[in-house]
Design a protein around this nucleic acid. Structure first.
Lengths: 256, 256
DNA sequence: AAGTGGTCTAGACCACACG
DNA sequence: GTGTGGTCTAGACCACTTC
């Protein structure tokens, strides 16, 4: 029996606190730093919370808060007994924020307007329109809205609202607030479902958006629910050359 | 002097713990629940941490953890002295995950393959190619890769790697691992920048992706950095009819 | 001045998974 | 069993902001 198991030559601590901001963030950065430097490789185990507690001379809570945050961002994985190891892949979590058009445009100092093109109550399943989340025969408020930036169309919104569940929309003209804003301010929601894809503009769409027939457009489909109850389904179409979704992510600062 | 300031008819506590999982999550759900129910409206102030501590008969830490989490998700905003109020808009945080193609396909039980179409070292700024993050004249490793699902093209990848900073890529054939996977496993990164938009397929692109000329395609541009040093720029093109980005978000469970 | 959230401590018990 | 992270407590000091 050997006395030591290969004497893994205790690595230099080398964690450096920068003195900026809260301790738990400093610790998070220090550890992230060492991982990025390759000091801890993928699959490799980090010091336990107990060890980090002594390394940084702090309480376990603080260490836990720091490392749990890294785990939330997917940089490390934590397991009881097995300890904390560096993730093998953390590319799965690239993240894109999706914002309301009007907010997006305001930030760019563009002038935002919208116009309701059409408004009617329709029956789910008829006229070729079916919203799978609701049974056929349900009443839907149909709204078609065009959103403009500096007078140029940037988004065509086709919306269906669960009319039976929210009959109060009948008396809303959406003159003051766009349907999107009105819903957000008046109807609570708890779940959202998104799909983003690309499509070619049909003749009708091209006309409404002021682009050429066949032009590539970005399409965002969004379904909103509250406790499983469907609220609204919205189909957003953007001219491909006038709109894009942008997102940044930085490991050092946390999210976004 | 009136004795009471209008006696704001102490609202019924009405927070309900469901007994499922950790206390701080139960509290988070209970509070979220009341907000969604409209019991606390937008801009309205929540009970302070001290009050919640007595309401839930727990420690302040636990309450803090619960409510801070809601704040991270954008449901509420916290301010010193002013207290915690329900956010006016929390639509800004709709989130879309972006995943590696191969992972995406694996999940759908589709067969994944890739082929390197072209590989060469080029000079930044020449041949009409400029990567703004690097100076003109820098060396770039150019890689063009096609990714297939069940034998059908789903992604055309055009990639530039900062060759001067990572000369080790010269000897990598990317035969075992796609450039994307190889980079993720061998080069540390700390910042990512994304843009998603739609575009019409050029003749060349249409040919490579096996779609019609002019077909709408989804384009993802991704720049990756490490401590501000550019690593790679990649231009991913998906046939619009064969690919979409999907994301779900639920307030009740936390993220994603 | 006073109330709020932000952070930190030093302890504790527990569930889980590995040996 | 034993070490790990997950959670919780009861206290504390501080910074900020509104009152």
């Amino acid at each position: 029996m050997s006395l030591v198991k290969k004497c893994t030559m205790q690595k230099p601590p080398s964690f450096v606190l920068d003195g900026q901001g809260p301790l738990f963030k400093q610790i998070g950065r220090a550890v992230t730093e060492q991982i990025l430097k390759g000091r801890y490789k993928q699959g490799e185990r980090l010091p336990s919370e107990a060890e980090l507690t002594t390394i940084f001379d702090t309480s376990r809570q603080t260490v836990n808060k720091a490392i749990s945050e890294l785990a939330k961002h997917g940089l490390v994985e934590r397991n009881r007994r097995a300890g904390t190891v560096v993730s093998w892949q953390f590319q799965e979590r690239f993240i894109l924020p999706l914002r309301d058009v009007s907010d997006e445009l305001e930030q760019n100092n563009q002038i935002y307007e919208y116009r309701i093109i059409e408004r009617k109550v329709i029956t789910n399943g008829k006229g070729g329109i079916t919203w799978g989340a609701l049974p056929a025969g349900a009443n839907l408020l149909y709204l078609e809205t065009i959103h403009l930036a500096d007078g140029l169309p940037v988004q065509l919104e086709t919306r269906y609202i669960n009319f039976d569940a929210f009959p109060e929309v009948e008396h809303e003209t959406f003159a003051e607030r766009s349907p999107s804003k009105w819903l957000l301010e008046n109807i609570p929601w708890s779940e959202v479902d998104h799909t983003v894809r690309a499509t070619n503009a049909s003749a009708e769409l091209a006309n409404k958006l002021g682009v050429k027939v066949g032009a590539a457009c970005l399409v965002v489909d969004r379904q909103t629910f509250h406790r499983g109850k469907p609220i609204t389904f919205v189909h957003l179409i953007y001219p491909g050359d006038r709109f894009s979704i942008k997102g940044k992510f930085s490991l050092a600062n946390g999210e976004e």
